[in-house]
Design a protein around this nucleic acid. Structure first.
Length: 152
DNA sequence: CGTTTGACTACGC
DNA sequence: CGCGTAGCCAAAC
């Protein structure tokens, strides 16, 4: 059997998830990758966790070239909340324009506040249907009492 | 068929 | 808190 460990079996899963990202929100490569369980059983879970985000990028690179309209590839950004495409890239400008058009704002550093625009992930039904795992929420729960004032 | 690069991320300074 | 580096694998050259 051709156990081709290429991305052909990985790509459809990425497509399915990216399609679920609502307009006006963004998801990170790592977040999407964390939802997809390791396909290769022999692969170490830790290794997979480090590799999968890059595979997501590779997959999206394929559809951004043809600009597949059914897949909102522009809503996927890196963990820093920035666009990973080369700044001078035509696709980067397109991605940024589309996000802004959807209401996503960029700060002075040209980065998106994931706390505000970060995606919570698809519904549980969707996850169960595909056998996906619930992603680690990219929204960082604000510490309840970060600036706990020292009474004395 | 060896080398290089990459839409990544975590970690260190 | 921003910038540089290491790691890891697949695809492109």
């Amino acid at each position: 059997m051709d156990a081709t460990p290429d991305l052909s079996s990985f790509a459809p899963l990425v497509y399915a998830i990216v399609k679920q990202i609502p307009s006006g929100t963004v998801a990170t490569y790592g977040q999407i990758a964390s939802m997809i369980p390791p396909i290769d059983d022999d692969m170490d879970a830790g290794a997979y966790a480090r590799l999968a985000p890059r595979w997501v990028g590779d997959v999206l690179n394929g559809i951004s070239s043809i600009d597949e309209p059914s897949i909102p590839w522009h809503r996927v950004i890196n963990s820093r909340g920035g666009i990973s495409l080369p700044n001078e890239s035509r696709a980067a400008a397109l991605q940024r324009a589309r996000l802004r058009h959807e209401g996503v704002e960029f700060d002075a550093h040209e980065q998106v506040n994931l706390n505000t625009y970060g995606w919570d992930g698809p519904p549980d039904e969707f996850l169960a249907h595909w056998g996906f795992m619930k992603p680690k929420s990219i929204k960082r729960p604000p510490p309840q009492g970060p600036q706990q004032m020292s009474l004395f």
